[in-house]
Simulated assay, not measured.
Amino acid sequence: MQVKQIWPQTTSVFFGYEATNLDRQACATAFGGRSLPAPACDRPFPFYGMSPDQTNVIFGQSRADQALTAVVRGHDPVAAGQVINPREVRELVLIFSNHERAIDNAVTDAVRKCGSPSTGAPDVYRTLVKSQNVDDLMIAGRMEIVDNKLIWLEFDEIGWNEASYQKVADLARSEAGRL
């Protein structure tokens, strides 16, 4: 996902990307054979309350082959002299070897426990998560399964609405389809 795809007229741009190949065998033994703790819905995604390195282990234990992350930040157009209110999207795409693995793993189990299914959309769940940028702000999180991919989106900062959530989700789905 690119900043200009979401906010074509933004004058303030921030983005970052990372791709991680996951060693499922090494991840399977990373916790000394212990099983994962129960998901804690008050923790950041993926709701297991672990460090970023441990989070990648969870993704590997969930049988994902790759984890692709993106952070993009921009804003809608504003008139000259007006305050810019940036918004941020954090995206994670987990790539699995097949659809069954994408819908049945520890990450999807946690989102199903902590979220609610989206009306009329199979394999789409929504939940609130703590903002990484603003203290005491709960933001929207969304998980969607597309073929052999799990897409997780977080919509940070204020100013989001249903139409803007859907625009980003549609873009993420389209981009994931090309992977």
Rank of each mutant, 00 (worst) to 15 (best):
Q2R: 15
Q5E: 14
I6H: 07
W7A: 03
V13P: 03
Y17G: 11
E18P: 03
E18I: 09
L22P: 03
C27G: 09
C27Y: 04
A28Q: 13
R34P: 02
S35C: 07
L36G: 10
L36H: 07
P37G: 09
P39N: 03
P39A: 08
F47T: 03
F47Q: 01
G49S: 05
M50R: 13
P52F: 08
V57Q: 05
I58K: 00
I58W: 00
Q61H: 05
S62Y: 00
S62R: 00
A67K: 05
A67F: 00
A67Q: 06
L68A: 07
T69C: 09
V72R: 01
D76S: 12
D76V: 08
D76Y: 09
A80C: 07
G81H: 04
G81Q: 07
R90G: 01
V93P: 00
F96H: 02
S97I: 05
E100C: 06
E100A: 13
N105G: 08
D109V: 03
G115H: 03
G115M: 04
T119I: 11
T119S: 13
Y125I: 01
G141N: 03
G141V: 01
R142E: 08
M143K: 01
I145P: 00
N148K: 06
W152I: 03
F155M: 04
G159V: 05
A163T: 06
A163L: 12
Q166M: 14
K167H: 11
V168K: 01
S174N: 11
E175T: 15
A176V: 05
